[in-house]
């Protein structure tokens, strides 16, 4: 199915473009200064002045969400690009050269896969200390493994095909064979994985910030806004509702795109 005929994917694309624009032009979209405090208006619900209401310090929630999108975007893009590059390098070496090196790399991959979900990221940020930089380090340390595995598997499946052998017979160097012949042919599943990976990174950052291990106040992040809102769940549910909605919409959009890409690029469904 073509991507342009896929309604959910188009919806996802729309959400993603909106998300990018809001993050890039936060000054333009935010109705107020995200750190402007009005203590007397603390926890006020949605109103004409403050569409999504105000937090405990009376700061405008919509504006904080607009600025918070920058953190999500930054984490999503940084984690996916660094993990992808690392995974590409390590997976290519393992898949193309094989042998002992491959065996060793795959054992390291196995070790990283032995930590379920974001456990390793939680552990790493817990010891490094809570900060955005450490969240990025932890998520990149975790992130490369998936790409390395996919890329290695894909390379193994094409390594002995005629066009690779032809390139080899022509005397092309391994770097040239990998970059010009193999990688362009195996990128489809990697692109799909990267889309889901961005969704995963955004959720992971929000989760870490929710646990207090991520972005520190007063910088707004969707996850830390949720954590703060949880303390006022009974008094002021709008503190929790809107940032959560933003996370869900962004992640849903990315998942729709990932699904659409998988169909459009005809990537075999992984069990």
């Amino acid at each position: 199915m073509r991507l342009s005929n896929n309604k959910p994917a188009l919806f996802g694309l729309f959400v993603l473009v909106a998300f990018f624009l809001v993050a890039l032009f936060a000054e333009f979209f935010a109705p107020a200064d995200p750190s402007e405090i009005h203590l007397e208006e603390g926890l006020n619900g949605p109103s004409a002045h403050h569409l999504f209401g105000q937090d405990k310090l009376g700061r405008d929630i919509l504006s904080r969400m607009v600025y918070g999108s920058r953190i999500s975007l930054l984490v999503g893009i940084t984690v996916v690009s660094i993990s992808l590059m690392t995974g590409l390098l390590i997976g290519s070496v393992a898949g193309y050269f094989g042998g002992l090196l491959d065996e060793a790399i795959m054992r390291v991959v196995d070790v990283f896969l032995a930590f379920p979900g974001i456990l390793l990221a939680i552990a790493i940020t817990a010891v490094l200390g809570p900060s955005l930089r450490n969240v990025l380090i932890a998520l990149c340390l975790m992130g490369w493994v998936g790409y390395a595995r996919i890329i290695r598997g894909q390379i193994l499946s094409v390594r002995e095909l005629e066009y690779v052998q032809a390139a080899r017979a022509n005397g092309a160097s391994p770097v040239r064979i990998l970059s010009r012949h193999i990688l362009p042919n195996i990128m489809a599943p990697v692109i799909v994985e990267a889309t889901f990976g961005m969704a995963g990174a955004i959720i992971a950052e929000a989760g870490l910030s929710f646990l207090g291990l991520g972005v520190q106040p007063p910088t707004p992040s969707w996850g830390s806004m949720l954590a703060e809102g949880r303390q006022f769940l009974l008094l002021a549910p709008h503190l929790t509702t809107f940032p959560g909605l933003a996370i869900m919409l962004t992640v849903l959009g990315l998942n729709f795109i990932g699904d659409g890409l998988r169909d459009a690029l005809d990537v075999r469904q992984q069990p």
């Binding site: 809102g229 929790t240 509702t241 959560g244 992640v251 998942n255 729709f256």
Partner: peptide, 18 residues
């Protein structure tokens, strides 16, 4: 199914409590 994987548990939990 897509909605379910996009709903982070740190949001779903508070929503259910509410």
């Amino acid at each position: 199914a897509l909605l379910g994987v996009s709903l982070p548990n740190f949001w779903l939990g508070p929503l259910l409590i509410l």
